[in-house]
Design a protein around this nucleic acid. Structure first.
Lengths: 159, 159
DNA sequence: CGCGATATTGGGATATTTTACCAATGGAAC
DNA sequence: GTTCCATTGGTAAAATATCCCAATATCGCG
């Protein structure tokens, strides 16, 4: 990690800033400054510093899943035939390219990966399985669990 | 659903807008307009419409999990003792209050809920379990699966 | 306590960006 | 072709971000 920029401890104000920006990144600097008890200038500088140091990694718009017609959410447990580093990397590269895969974790326990995948309906999920996932080499097993509903979905990490 | 605002079909330009804003919501209208092949005015109007109709639900900053010292990601499978609507609602309400729980899904199959939880370390995860999750009434079983690493994490739905 | 060095703050000027208005353009129905 | 409707593009005004510099607070050290 050569490009590492040391991040001094986040103080209470930094945490407030992060908390508010995680909830709503369209706040104006004035609004944000008011909420955290600073004037605009230092608030602005803190935000820029948090960005430069990678504490704030990006700003994104969140889109409504139903509005896009993506009615199916699936969790997929995957075991690989072998778990050598090269196998893991190959798998990671493949799934990273697929937009349907929103999350993928390397897991402890009796599966290797856990994926969260979205699709318009069961038919297009089947297409994803048949044309993409099952075509990967080195997969020992695939097990799909379907979500009936999303009870909570948050991007905001606890600060 | 009385407040429903009908959303006409999203055309190719709307989808491009959503795609770009999901990747980077700090694009200026000028930049976004260039990318989607419009001038600023119509691009701006489309974005506002997507916001009003709830297709774009919010704008958020994403924060680096490691920078916050949240080194533990856990998936928790939960079975309830009973699955009556009231039990489900009670569980959902409790879960929704806890910042450690980033995602929660009602599932088909042999568990009722799947949760994604983050914590600073195993000790604070244990605290979460002991002081919050296991204190809920009506839980039949809890099973934790730990993530070794996050291979992919995206907020961008496929458009 | 007191002093200096350093980091942080606040205000104000300027540059950018957003936003609203209105005329112009394009496409579909007839 | 012509009319109507939806959408576009340009422009100007308002809101916001950004930068600079002086003022203030904080910390280390005698």
């Amino acid at each position: 990690m050569t490009g590492f920029i040391p991040m001094p401890e986040l103080d209470a104000i930094d945490r407030k800033i992060l908390s508010h920006l995680q909830a709503d990144s369209r706040l104006t600097m004035q609004e944000l400054a008011d909420k955290v008890g600073l004037s605009v200038s230092p608030c602005h500088r803190r935000v820029k510093l948090l960005e430069e140091r990678g504490v704030i990694s990006r700003y994104v718009a969140t889109v409504d899943q139903k509005a896009l017609g993506l009615h199916v959410s699936v969790f997929i447990s995957i075991k690989l035939a072998r778990q050598k580093e090269e196998d893991l990397n190959r798998f990671a590269r493949a799934i990273s390219k697929w937009d349907e895969v929103l999350e993928c974790y390397l897991m402890t326990g009796n599966r290797d990966y856990l994926l969260r995948v979205v699709a318009a309906d069961l038919a297009s999920y089947e297409t994803f399985l048949k044309t993409k996932l099952t075509r990967l080499d080195g997969i020992a097993s695939i097990e799909s669990s379907f979500a009936l509903s999303q009870v909570k979905y948050s991007i905001a990490l606890p600060v």
